[in-house]
Design a binder for these strands. Sequence first.
DNA 1: CCTTTATATAAAACATATGTTATATAACAG
DNA 2: CTGTTATATAACATATGTTTTATATAAAGG
Lengths: 112, 112
Amino acid sequence: MQSLDAAFLALADPTRRAILARLALGEATVMELAEPFDMTQPAVSRHLKVLEGAGLITRRVDGTKRPCRLAPQAIVEIDRWLDWLRQAMARNYDRLDDVLAEMQTEEGREKP
Amino acid sequence: MQSLDAAFLALADPTRRAILARLALGEATVMELAEPFDMTQPAVSRHLKVLEGAGLITRRVDGTKRPCRLAPQAIVEIDRWLDWLRQAMARNYDRLDDVLAEMQTEEGREKP
DNA sequence: CCTTTATATAAAACATATGTTATATAACAG
DNA sequence: CTGTTATATAACATATGTTTTATATAAAGG
């Protein structure tokens, strides 16, 4: 489950999500990715390292350039976890004790 | 997009994901949630605050107890974002420039 | 009332993240 | 070789998270 830590943490930063959004349009180099941000190149390099470490992007070597692209791996893992949670939630909504608890909140517990 | 920050950050912690996993079995009080963890009650209270702030759980009042349950809200938002990214990724895999880039990596760029 | 139970909050310690500047590396252009 | 371009890394400052202990609050049980 440790990779979920990395993946969710990577996605928790708006800059990194913006980078992913840019990569959704296609491959881009570090400089291309850095350009729209009010941020230095080393900062972007670090964000890319985080994204790569989380399995959200991959990088190839092209001369001095390191073009980045989206990688499906981490997303798949996140999806699996969310699917599981979503299903557990759905099952839960059918359980009687929850319904009863709800009723208790709405009715009996309104300060008498 | 700020709520995505909160939601992803909340999910980035294994303790908090474990709490959600426990809540998937049904409502639980703070003490019940704290019990399985090697952690003090205030620490769990803070985690719950983070989860609530992210829209991942809700709390009701029952005497001195504050039973928690899963909330769908944040999950829906995360899902939307991931759906978008997944689709962008899928579109991306069909693009010619990516295919060419791939070929270039595999073939031409193997140090001659 | 007084005590216990359930939870929250404050203060402080410590860890981790994020950004900066300065510098290294490595390929490319000439 | 030399200078330039693209990227990475190191060192550092600052901010943000996480956890603990100690304490507050507030309802419940006698």
